[in-house]
Amino acid sequence: MTASPTGDDLLVLHALRCAGFTDLARVAAVTGLGESDAESELITLATAGHVTYTAGVFGGWGLTEAGRAADARRITEELEAAGARTAVAGAYERFLVLNPELLDICGAWQLRPVGGATTVNDHTDPAYDARVLGRLADLDRRAQAVCADLSAALPRFGRYRIRLADALARAASGDLDYVTDDMASYHTVWFQLHEDLLATLGIPR
């Protein structure tokens, strides 16, 4: 069975479920929609009471309780309609094998062992940073296989492959914030993928 693409409204709703409270630009980045399309979906969802907008410095879009419930129901329906539960559950298991290693790598990016003690990685040793990035690239090759299985089961997962590759490419080209720090960093996208797998399979944290 080939799953049909997820509708834009569910893509936007689910982006807020997995990325949390956030602004329009990030909703667009997470979903791959243009900002005006994403905004239009957000306004429709707001009318239905599924999302709300908060103004101010920490302002942005967030899910309501009703929106969270609607997302859970629709994401489960989509999973079952596509007959994708077994494939996604299998991919989740393979994700869990990679997850501790990814966290090791991110930890090593932030803190480095120096003479038995750990100290903040101040990124003044290019050889060390290259070692960490080398391991991230190696892990990414294995993560690609998991992402491919996921997108084959449900096309909406394809967005993670694009976002992870983008973060890795930026980090490799010297934009050091794209390992752990930026809102589009490898760790941030990975963290959202983890949340998405839990939400999709209905596994509580």
């Binding site: 501790p100 966290l103 090791d104 991110c106 930890g107 932030q110 803190l111 752990t180 720090d181 760790h187 963290f191 983890h194």
Partner: peptide
């Protein structure tokens, strides 16, 4: 642990 998502985000 020290390499959990929470720890990494906090250090970020």
């Amino acid at each position: 642990g020290p390499a959990s998502h929470a720890a990494i985000v906090a250090r970020t």
